[in-house]
């Protein structure tokens, strides 16, 4: 059996392992506060994890003759998931780590499949794809954090809109942070541009 065929045929099982492994990451925490439970309490986080990982896997390995994945589509699919992770006290590295989880899950599954005839080239291609994915995730994560900080700046500006944006004569009354922000960020004349 070819690697691509193997990945397509064992889709369900590999996906499940992958999802539970990513969710497990909450439990492998050094503090070991939590362990996993079967009946998952429904939630934005769990939902997004399951949904995103399933879709991403399908886009990559749905059929043995899967065409090269559309990176733009992959990026779009992962955006919400990464957005959530980006505000969840994950370290930047751990935001990417879930991609490497898939490598491990596939390797374990492949070890059990006796008739698997995967060439080195097959494996290289597989790893390259996931590495590429990891880079996208990293981009996304950084973009989310940037957006978050931009939001912070926007908030300070819009809260003091009349001072920072409107050339108000009372700008001298604003506290130092606001002034600093106004100095650092070129002034926009209208809020729409700021957005």
């Amino acid at each position: 059996m070819q690697l691509a065929q193997f990945l397509a045929e064992n889709k369900g099982e590999i996906q499940d392992h992958w999802i539970s492994r990513v969710l497990d990451s909450y439990a492998e925490d050094a503090a070991a506060i939590f362990k996993r439970e079967q009946d998952r309490f429904a939630n934005p986080v769990g939902y997004s994890t399951r949904q995103t990982l399933t879709t991403v896997y399908s886009l990559l390995f749905d059929r043995p003759d899967q065409p090269e994945p559309d990176l733009q589509q992959l990026r779009a699919e992962m955006e919400t998931f990464i957005k959530i992770r980006a505000v969840q006290t994950f370290t930047p590295a751990s935001a990417v780590a879930f991609i490497y989880d898939l490598k491990a899950v596939v390797r374990e599954a492949a070890a059990k499949q006796r008739d698997l005839a995967a060439t080195t080239a097959d494996w290289e291609h597989f790893h390259d794809t996931l590495d590429q994915l990891a880079l996208i995730v990293f981009d996304l994560y950084v973009a989310c954090r940037e957006r978050l900080f931009q939001t912070k700046i926007n908030e300070i500006k819009s809260m003091n809109y009349m001072h920072t944006q409107h050339g108000c004569s009372a700008a001298g009354q604003v506290d130092k942070t606001t002034q600093l922000m106004a100095d650092v960020q070129p002034l926009h004349t209208h809020s729409n541009e700021a957005r």
């Binding site: 969710l23 990451s25 909450y26 439990a27 492998e28 925490d29 050094a30 503090a31 506060i33 939590f34 362990k35 996993r36 439970e37 079967q38 009946d39 998952r40 309490f41 939630n43 934005p44 986080v45 769990g46 994890t49 969840q88 006290t89 994950f90 370290t91 590295a93 751990s94 780590a97």
Partner: peptide, 14 residues
Amino acid sequence: KVKVVKEPSLMTGS
């Protein structure tokens, strides 16, 4: 992953 989350979460099924 050991460094991942310090915040407990029932929301993930944990």
